[in-house]
Simulated scan of single mutants.
Amino acid sequence: MAKEATDLTTIDLFSDDKRPGRPKTNPHSRSVQVRINKRNQVKRDKTNGLKRVEFKIHENLINQLDQLAKNTGSNRSELIESLLVKALALDEN
């Protein structure tokens, strides 16, 4: 019996064939890759003098911040940082 590429009834003949798709380029699982990437990001941020801050605020305020960030052409993190810097500068005066 000849091996025909379009023959789906003899799929067992193709079990050793390479499957199409993205080749595996990293020996680690995805969860390990995420942990490694996050650790590297924290190291990069630390060398750049950045510190992570997390807090909870109401969704309406988030929407306002997002809109203001979009209008100013920055992201939410940069906007919050600039607002804090301005508030602290006003407090010093």
Rank of each mutant, 00 (worst) to 15 (best):
M1W: 09
A2P: 11
K3S: 04
T6A: 12
L8A: 04
L8Q: 05
L8F: 07
T10Y: 10
T10A: 14
I11A: 09
L13C: 09
F14I: 06
D16S: 12
K18L: 06
R19V: 13
P20F: 06
P20R: 05
R22A: 14
P23A: 08
K24Y: 01
P27H: 09
H28L: 13
H28R: 15
S31M: 13
V34G: 10
R35G: 09
I36R: 13
K38C: 12
K38Y: 15
R39K: 15
R39V: 13
Q41S: 10
Q41T: 12
K43T: 13
K43V: 13
R44A: 11
R44Y: 08
D45Y: 10
K46R: 13
K46T: 08
K46G: 00
T47F: 10
N48R: 05
L50I: 07
E54V: 03
F55I: 02
I57D: 00
I57G: 00
E59M: 01
N60S: 05
L61G: 03
I62H: 03
Q64H: 06
L65D: 00
D66H: 01
L68G: 03
A69G: 00
A69I: 00
K70R: 09
N71C: 01
T72C: 11
T72H: 14
G73N: 07
G73T: 03
N75W: 01
N75M: 01
R76Y: 02
R76K: 09
S77C: 01
I80V: 13
L83R: 01
L83K: 00
A87S: 05
A87I: 09
A89L: 15
A89N: 15
L90A: 12
L90F: 14
L90V: 12
D91P: 02
E92C: 11
E92D: 14
N93C: 15
